[in-house]
């Protein structure tokens, strides 16, 4: 019993160590890649696959989040006579939390799954070893461009999600439920600060990096066979999802502390 537990603990610690090493190598490869002109076309290609092709799903995600929030919150606010503040509620939720997190989850599914499956297949068909046998660092060639593309593009995708969330909320709130246009926006403007938007976008950097590194790691350490690749994809998604949530919490705490040291408390309801 203890032996089993002990063995598993040693395994887990070993895996954490391995993952740490992988992160370190990836960081080093990314930094080196910045000065190597051969990296740019690789990053460019990944940006197309990861970024451009994700825009539609990200926009759909954002729009529905905004619209749903409007539908859900309207009745309660109306009962209190606060319905004109619907805008601030929707926009701050979208910009601070729901936009970044849901966009990241969407990316973890769309991009993370694809990265793990691609690298996992390359791993089991020895293509990663082939890169090594040619004398090229597979982390530089395969991982760094994907991580860099994710890091650079997730913030932009989050801007898209935010934008569409805001528009979706506006559409339902003002066009469908008939809230006064001017009141909707002026309450929003007074409630949502640039800080909130920026924090949401900075979160994107972390989420993007986490998704890419975790997915690539799972691909690189994937077990043999079709089942191995499938399992790696599942694990990659679950791990990415959990790290998105954990990072979101940690970053929320950190940014709140930073905010509180510079600015006084701000009430959204007052």
């Amino acid at each position: 019993m203890f032996e089993v537990l002990g063995a598993r603990a040693i395994d887990d610690i070993g895996n954490i160590g391995q993952f740490g090493r992988f992160c370190w190598q990836t960081t080093a490869a990314c930094l080196r890649g910045c000065w190597n002109h051969k990296t740019y076309p690789l990053v460019w290609a990944q940006m197309h696959i990861i970024g451009v092709r994700s825009v539609p799903v990200i926009m759909i995600t954002g729009a529905f989040v905004g619209m749903t929030l409007a539908v859900q919150a309207y009745d309660q606010l109306k009962a209190m006579g606060f319905e004109e503040r619907l805008g601030v509620l929707i926009n701050i939720s979208v910009v601070k939390e729901l936009g970044p997190v849901l966009a990241a989850v969407m990316l973890a599914g769309r991009v993370g799954g694809a990265l793990t499956a691609e690298l996992g297949t390359m791993n089991v068909t020895e293509q990663i070893d082939a890169v090594r046998s040619i004398g090229t660092d597979p982390i530089w060639y395969l991982v760094a461009p994907r991580v860099m593309a994710c890091l650079l593009l997730t913030p932009f995708l989050i801007i898209y999600a935010d934008l569409l969330g805001i528009l979706g909320g506006f559409f339902v709130g003002v066009k469908q439920l008939g809230i006064n246009n001017w009141a909707y926006w002026s309450f929003s403007a007074s409630g949502v600060e640039l800080w909130d938007v920026v924090v949401g976008i900075i979160k994107g950097l972390f989420f993007g990096g986490a998704i890419a590194v975790i997915s690539c790691y799972k691909g690189f350490t994937c077990k043999e066979g079709a089942q191995g690749v499938g399992q790696a994809c599942t694990e990659a998604f679950v791990s990415s999802f959990i790290s998105i949530l954990v990072l979101d919490f940690v970053l929320a705490v950190m940014f709140k502390a930073i905010y509180n040291t510079f600015w006084p408390f701000r009430s959204l309801v007052g």
Binding site: M122, T125, E126, Q127, D129, A130, R132, S133, I134, G135, T136, D137
Partner: peptide
Amino acid sequence: EQDLNEVRTRFGFLFQGGALF
């Protein structure tokens, strides 16, 4: 691995399964 990359450029390796990209 870094130093090995240098050495490996002097080798050609054919994988049993080909391992084409």
